[in-house]
Amino acid sequence: MTDAIIQLQGVDKFFGNFQALRDINLEVQKGEKIVVCGPSGSGKSTMIRCINRLEEHSAGKIIVDGHELTDEVKDIDAVRREVGMVFQSFNLFPHRTIIDNLMLAPRLVRKTSKAEAREHAMRLLERVRIPEQADKYPVQLSGGQQQRVAIARALCMNPEIMLFDEPTSALDPEMINEVLEVMTDLAHEGMTMICVTHEMGFARSVADRVVFMDQGEIVEMNPPAEFFDNPKNDRTKLFLSQIIQH
């Protein structure tokens, strides 16, 4: 019995015959920042998508903030209220203004009043530094701005945990920093975060632990200094040598 806020125990995931996750065991404490890295196809996205039940795990247990993830809709809904997600392709609702994007879930799911939701949304837009875009449509914003809106939208639900699925992979290089800055601020404020990313600089400065996944398994997991300077496993060494060239 631990009080880890996220527990994955012996988790497997199959897509048909293909095994995407093999015996995943992971515990995340409240306030911890985890960065997950690995080659494509390693299962990193699948793993975090299992945490908010966008994917159903095939075997094992997943417990989030005391709720075990099963087919029980009550539990799934409870988890999704507490877990926010930011996607690689932003996924802002194109037919709604920025502020409407932020207000939709609080009003429908937490039944917040319109005025309260709007006030909360504006505060968050200020926090991600783009309050002036409130009445624009997503298509009118740059990629970096859209992703910051996406972060604000997830934060509007006051989650305990934030999941990031390659948040900067679809951005032009000059916009990556503005998003990483918001994520770093969030980290310093004590949010529990799991980030799948290739941004190793971010991992070094923000992560409490770095997790390396390959072919569906967690191969190595260590605090950043240990991880980058003293990788133990050969596969980890290979991966690090491939990405830290430029």
Partner: peptide, 14 residues
Amino acid sequence: ERGLLEAGSALGLS
């Protein structure tokens, strides 16, 4: 787009 529905689902919409 599936991603939009996933975002809605992640936000807790039924």
